[in-house]
């Protein structure tokens, strides 16, 4: 076990993938000499060369489109999108090409791309630097979408994503890049499946599902709720597409209550899909309608206003109060 930051864990996972498979190439803006604006690819170009770690001209569609061509020739490209809000110029290539080529070619051409996307807010950044665009990709068949919440998962899941024969959107919670944790670098790729959610904290009264940066907030919420006599079960979803419904379903059948939290806007988000599917699967077990604690349906706000938008400990706990039928903001009663 080594203690390292989330960012370092991804770097270590990328290094492993580059060492393990000569067909793995990294391509993105500023990922070479600079090591990426977040230093996630630090030293990799120096150690593996400019043809394995490629500084790309500033054109996201071309980063994805050329990666498609490389995949045609048997490569496993790892594309870095510098910031969440810069992914849209590449949307056409991701949705119309990367996601559909395996289907279009009836399985003859594989698209084992990994698309790394630093996402989410909470870092006081400029416009287009704090977004959570994951729902667009959940809605696109042919893609897998994952998000790691801790250094161990980051280390493992980036390697699993690269080894996967399907294209994977790999959402990195950028405000956790500097969070430290224990990482077992000897953990094998089969030690925990990429598609499987994880029960972070076991509990009995309500299920709190989230992913990425909010997993830490959810853990804090569980501790605070415990002081209040509520036992929260916290699930880190890890895979956003496909969703591991079995794990969430088992939890909700036990607790009868579901709260989903994400930074992304509420309408049409992952919470909507979870609320609908879990209601369908667990209708007779539910004690309360599922609650979504999400970003509002607004453009990501400026730095001094972002705390109004981002779900935090108190908003999550307010959602827990709602599903528990306790005094909460919606009932018009003040909490104790």
């Amino acid at each position: 076990m080594n203690t390292m930051t989330f960012g370092r864990a991804i770097n270590s996972g990328l290094r492993r993938a580059l060492e393990h498979d000569s067909r793995v190439v990294l391509i993105g803006e500023d990922i070479g000499t600079l090591g990426g604006v977040f230093r996630i690819t630090d030293e990799l170009q120096k150690d593996f060369g400019g043809h394995r770690v490629i500084d790309a001209p500033l054109a996201e569609s071309a980063i994805l489109g050329t990666a498609v061509g490389m995949a045609y020739r048997g490569y496993r490209p790892v594309c870095e999108i510098q910031f969440d809000g810069f992914i849209y110029p590449a949307f056409n290539q991701i949705v119309s090409q990367v996601a559909k080529l395996h289907y279009r070619t009836q399985g003859r051409v594989k698209m084992p791309l990994t698309i790394r996307v630093p996402f989410g807010g909470g870092i006081g950044a400029a416009e287009h630097h704090s977004e959570s665009p994951e729902a667009y990709f959940l809605h696109t068949s042919g893609l897998r979408v994952v998000s790691a919440s801790n250094p161990q998962d980051a280390f493992l899941m980036i390697q699993q994503a690269i080894a996967c024969d399907d294209p994977v959107l790999f959402f990195e919670p950028k405000r956790r890049y500097h969070s430290k944790g224990e990482v077992d670098e000897d953990a094998g790729l089969d030690s925990y499946p990429m598609e499987q959610a994880r029960v972070e904290i076991a509990g009995d009264d309500a299920t709190l599902v989230t992913y990425g940066a909010l997993v830490q907030v959810a853990r804090e919420a569980a501790m605070a709720a415990r002081d209040d006599g509520i036992s929260l079960e916290v699930i880190d979803l890890r895979s956003l597409s496909p969703i591991d419904f079995a794990t969430v379903e088992a939890s909700v059948r036990k607790t009868g209550r579901l709260v989903v939290a994400h930074e992304a806007s509420r309408t049409g988000g992952l919470g909507a899909e979870l609320a609908a599917s879990i209601t369908q699967r667990c209708f007779y077990y539910l004690e309360h309608a599922p609650e979504r604690i999400a970003g509002f349906d607004i453009p990501y706000p400026p730095a001094k206003m972002e705390h109004h938008h981002l779900p935090d400990l108190d908003r999550i706990l307010d959602g827990v109060d709602r599903v528990m039928g306790r005094p909460n903001s919606l009932s018009g009663q003040e909490g104790n």
């Binding site: 489109g65 050329t66 990666a67 061509g69 490389m70 045609y72 020739r73 056409n92 119309s96 090409q97």
Partner: peptide, 18 residues
């Protein structure tokens, strides 16, 4: 999709060079 394949050809050519 009009023009999308020009990038695929370019990426394929880059890989050929690798």
């Amino acid at each position: 999709i009009i023009g999308a394949q020009t990038l695929h050809a370019t990426g394929y050519a880059m890989a050929t060079k690798f």
